[in-house]
Design a protein around this nucleic acid. Sequence first.
DNA 1: AGCTGGTCCTGATGGC
DNA 2: TGCCATCAGGACCAGC
Length: 273
Amino acid sequence: MPELPEVEVVRSGLAATAVGRRITGVVTRAPALRWPIPDGLPERLTGWVLRAVERRGKYLLFAVEPGWLIVHLGMSGTIAWTPPDRPLRNHDHFELQFAGGLLRLNDPRRFGAVLWHDASEGAPEHHPLLASLGVEPFSAAFDGDLLYRATRGRRLAIKQLLLSGTVVVGVGNIYASESLFRAGIRPTTAAGRISRARCLTLAQAIRQTLAAAIQAGGSTLRDFVASDGASGYFQNECFVYDRAGEPCRVCATPVRVMRQQQRSTFWCPRCQT
DNA sequence: AGCTGGTCCTGATGGC
DNA sequence: TGCCATCAGGACCAGC
């Protein structure tokens, strides 16, 4: 489910509602998501005030004095405030308790992650999973120039390069199709054959697409909700994603769908060349 | 049965 | 030949 916009919507919701509150308890109800949930989280987290909720790519970072709780929502994860009297649902794997509030992580497919990065290991950027991520799309480091340099010599299709997260993070399957549509670039184009000018356009399209999605509260295709339970509505604003056979919003040509690396790619054969 | 928002790992390939 | 970077496919999992 969650690509960068959805994770950012969750992050900003938690930054506004959870930061500054003291953690009163931690409950782990599953031995593992994608990886084992580390032992000792209750001891590491309980009693500390949550200092910040940050984001790196699609990872959420909950900062407390001894370190960072790292959470990834995978394909199907949600983390939201839950009434204290609400019975456990299936796949409620983890929870953070605060005075007067309860955050529950629910993840049916268990592709997500709950991990710990100790302050003694330095900044969380040094965590093995975060160390080799591409740049943040809203950082000054990300522009058409970077995209141009990073794509030279690459024969991989641009859609797949965007999904890989090695150049820029946060662009998943929905926003890769949407960004390429906005940039007018065919998803199968070899990354290394995209001109400098089109790299500039694409970098801009990526930023615009992600920003618009954040503005819309993310995309709720099935089950995404923000930390307050709200659905996103960017799916209604998509130009191509999940619109196979429907008329392109720009030229009315039927939107096409194809498979790239086992993932659906949606595109307009007329607008994208 | 086949599809779904992610991404790590493995093994194959290709260039120098 | 060997080393490296790159790339494709499989794996994980539940729900519809």
